[in-house]
Amino acid sequence: MAGTHPAHAEKIVIGYMPILNQAEAVSEYLGLYKKYGLEVELKLFQNGPASLRALLSGDVQVSEAGVVPMLNMAGQGLPVYYLTSGGITTPEYPGGTIMIRNGDTTTRSFKDLKGKQIGQLGKGTNTYFWLWNATNKFGMQRSDLKEVFVPFPQMGDLLASKQVDAVYAWPPFDTLIAKSGRGKLLVDDAAWNPYTVVNAIAVRRDWADKNPDTVKKIVKITIETNRWINDNPYKAREILGKNIKLPEDVYKTMRLSYFPRNGYQMMPSIWDFYHLMVSTGEFQAFPDPKAVFDRYWIEPARKFIAPALHDLGLQDDPTVKKALKIKLQNLPQPLEAYLAPWERDEPLRSGN
């Protein structure tokens, strides 16, 4: 008889990478996908470009995207929306670190790296662009650094074998380097990168427009997960650490990003990164930047995040509020010019 069979959960494929701030593992642990009636397959990709190619081809419905890929895809006019924020860095929750060898007693500050070899992830990555911030802040030229491109997992070996003098590492690899005795902290990058959006959820525009209720469920899951991680950092470290097979002594002490309690991205950070990339000459300016930001960030927030928060309820987020008072170094206009409506405490009416 009709109606006697239980409804099938909707199947969603979410692309993720083997890095620390992929909160999907926590969402799955908490049973949030089942709570919202979604059957989710978490599909592992070894790097961000592979996951985003799968998103654009339709092989996955949801993927995480870093700031550089988000801006690159927006610049190409690709049909995607950027939704809830994943982890962010702040002065209290710094991200990247400059690591030096344990026996190095002469390198006491970033300026002391002048003329030395530094291992960093590669051209076009977040840390690649953030090194521009560092050299600008400390009155150095980019050519003062002798850069060696190296994947995060190999940084400790290059440092210990003296093939480089320092590395620009990212959690959990900084902790892995320190715990293995291959290096020590020189400085964290909050000195030149006080806060930033590390990654956010990306969805194909056509799929999202056809499945708005599903997208709103995914947004709710992300927000609930963000709040739980902040409230349960020790258990979150365990879940995330075990998911990428880290030793217990590493995941118990590794740095953990902060996860915005209301899911909104911190728009001055995106604007700052855009102006940084343009200033290096390695990224072409948008003809109408505001229109691009509205299309890729503001309108999707109005369409999907605002209604999700209407159901879940807004929460006070002192960490985000404190960070948003910081003027970032690449913004040419006053900070207020880059605040999104939700950052001005203006109502963001949901739309369909």
Score class of each variant (00 low, 15 high):
109 S>P: 05
192 W>S: 09
50 A>W: 00
326 I>F: 15
343 E>P: 01
290 K>W: 09
293 F>Y: 07
93 Y>I: 04
316 D>H: 05
279 S>W: 10
307 P>L: 13
180 S>T: 15
244 I>F: 05
315 Q>M: 15
106 T>H: 14
74 A>W: 02
70 M>Q: 12
336 E>H: 02
62 V>P: 06
238 E>G: 12
12 I>G: 05
190 A>Q: 11
321 K>S: 11
173 F>H: 14
128 Y>G: 09
293 F>M: 11
145 L>P: 09
270 I>Q: 07
158 L>K: 10
31 G>M: 03
137 K>V: 08
322 K>E: 11
88 I>A: 07
252 K>T: 15
143 S>N: 12
105 T>I: 11
345 D>F: 14
15 G>S: 01
18 P>T: 06
341 P>E: 04
25 A>F: 04
131 L>P: 02
329 Q>G: 03
54 A>N: 04
54 A>S: 15
206 D>P: 13
43 K>Y: 15
215 V>C: 02
80 V>I: 14
286 F>L: 02
125 T>P: 00
121 L>D: 03
339 L>W: 00
153 P>A: 15
154 Q>M: 10
290 K>V: 13
73 M>W: 13
181 G>S: 05
79 P>I: 06
200 A>T: 02
86 G>T: 09
134 A>V: 04
6 P>I: 14
152 F>D: 03
320 V>D: 00
66 G>Y: 12
79 P>H: 09
208 A>L: 06
89 T>R: 03
345 D>M: 09
174 D>H: 11
62 V>T: 12
290 K>C: 08
41 E>A: 14
141 Q>Y: 11
105 T>Y: 11
129 F>A: 02
31 G>H: 03
340 A>C: 04
52 L>R: 06
138 F>E: 10
147 E>T: 11
31 G>P: 03
318 P>Q: 06
274 Y>C: 10
282 E>C: 11
134 A>K: 01
310 H>I: 01
149 F>P: 10
289 P>N: 07
323 A>I: 05
348 L>T: 13
14 I>L: 09
252 K>G: 12
337 A>G: 05
144 D>C: 14
91 P>L: 04
278 V>I: 11
165 D>P: 06
78 L>D: 07
270 I>S: 04
91 P>H: 01
20 L>P: 00
85 S>V: 02
99 M>Y: 05
245 K>H: 13
168 Y>S: 12
246 L>K: 05
49 P>S: 05
126 N>Q: 14
41 E>L: 12
195 Y>V: 03
